[in-house]
Computed example of a mutant assay.
Amino acid sequence: MIGPLLVFDFDQTIADLNTDVEVQKLHPEGKIPETSEIHKLYDKTGWTDYMGAVFKLLHSHNISKDQILELMGSLQFTPGMVELLKTSVEEHNAKIIIISDSNSVFIEHILEYNGLKHLVDAVFTNPAEWGEEGLTIKPYHHQVECELSTQNLCKEKIRNIF
Score class of each variant (00 low, 15 high):
Gly134Gln: 13
Asp121Ser: 14
Ala15Ser: 15
Asp43Glu: 12
Ile99Pro: 08
Glu70Ser: 15
Phe77Glu: 12
Gln76Asp: 14
Gly134Ile: 05
Leu17Cys: 15
Leu69Asp: 05
Asp66Ser: 15
Gly52Asn: 15
Ala94Leu: 06
Leu153Ala: 06
Glu37Phe: 13
Asn152Ile: 06
His118Lys: 10
His59Gln: 03
Lys40Val: 08
Thr136Tyr: 08
Glu129Cys: 08
Ser64Ile: 09
Asn160Phe: 12
His39Val: 02
Leu69Ser: 04
Gly73Tyr: 03
Ile99Asp: 15
Ser104Asn: 07
Gln151Asn: 11
Ser74His: 11
Trp130Ile: 12
His92Thr: 01
Phe124Lys: 10
Ile68Met: 10
Lys44Ile: 04
Lys40Asn: 13
Tyr42Phe: 15
Glu108Trp: 14
Cys154Phe: 05
Val120Trp: 10
Lys155His: 02
Ile137Ser: 02
Glu70Pro: 03
Lys138Gly: 04
Asp101Met: 01
Val123Arg: 01
Gly131Lys: 15
His27Lys: 00
Ile97Pro: 05
Ile14Lys: 02
Tyr140Ser: 09
Ile32Leu: 04
Thr87Met: 08
Ile97Gly: 07
Lys40Leu: 10
Met72Trp: 08
Tyr50Ile: 00
Ile107Gly: 06
Lys155Pro: 03
Gly73Phe: 02
Pro79Cys: 05
Gly73Thr: 01
Leu111Lys: 09
His92Gly: 01
Gly46Ala: 10
Gly30Ile: 02
Asn126Ala: 08
Gly30Asp: 01
Ser104Asp: 14
Glu91Gln: 13
Leu17Lys: 13
Thr35Trp: 14
Ser104Arg: 07
His92Pro: 02
Asp43Val: 05
Glu91Met: 14
Leu26Gln: 02
Phe106Ala: 15
Gly80Ala: 08
Ser88Ile: 01
Glu145Ile: 13
Ile32Phe: 00
His142Trp: 11
Val82Ile: 14
Tyr42Ser: 02
Asp16Leu: 12
Gln151Glu: 09
Thr45Pro: 02
Phe106Gly: 02
His27Gly: 00
Glu132Gly: 09
Val123Asn: 01
Ile96Pro: 05
Ser64Met: 10
Leu148Glu: 13
Glu83Asp: 09
Ile38Thr: 00
Asn18Gln: 07
Ala53Ile: 03
Ala128His: 03
Gln76Ala: 08
Leu71His: 05
Leu26Ala: 01
His118Tyr: 11
Arg159Asp: 02
Cys146Thr: 05
Met72Cys: 07
His118Gly: 07
Ser64Asp: 09
Met72Val: 13
Ser88Ala: 13
Thr35Leu: 13
Leu119Gly: 02
Val82Glu: 10
Ile137Phe: 04
Thr150Arg: 11
Pro28His: 14
Gly73Asn: 01
Gln151Tyr: 08
Val120Ile: 12
Val120Ser: 14
Gly30Met: 01
Glu37Ala: 11
Thr78Leu: 04
Ser36Cys: 03
Glu70Ile: 03
Leu57Thr: 07
Phe124Glu: 14
Glu29Leu: 06
Trp47Phe: 15
Leu148Arg: 11
Leu58His: 01
His61Cys: 00
Asn18Lys: 06
Ile32Thr: 01
Lys56Asn: 07
Asn160Trp: 13
Ile110Cys: 10
Tyr113Ile: 07
His109Asp: 04
Ile98Glu: 08
Lys44Ser: 05
Lys157Tyr: 11
Ser102Asp: 09
Ser64Trp: 08
Phe106Val: 08
Leu84Ser: 12
Trp130Glu: 06
Phe106Ser: 06
Pro33Asp: 10
Leu41Glu: 12
Asp20Asn: 01
Ile107Phe: 13
Ser149Met: 15
Val82Thr: 06
Lys31His: 03
Asp16Val: 02
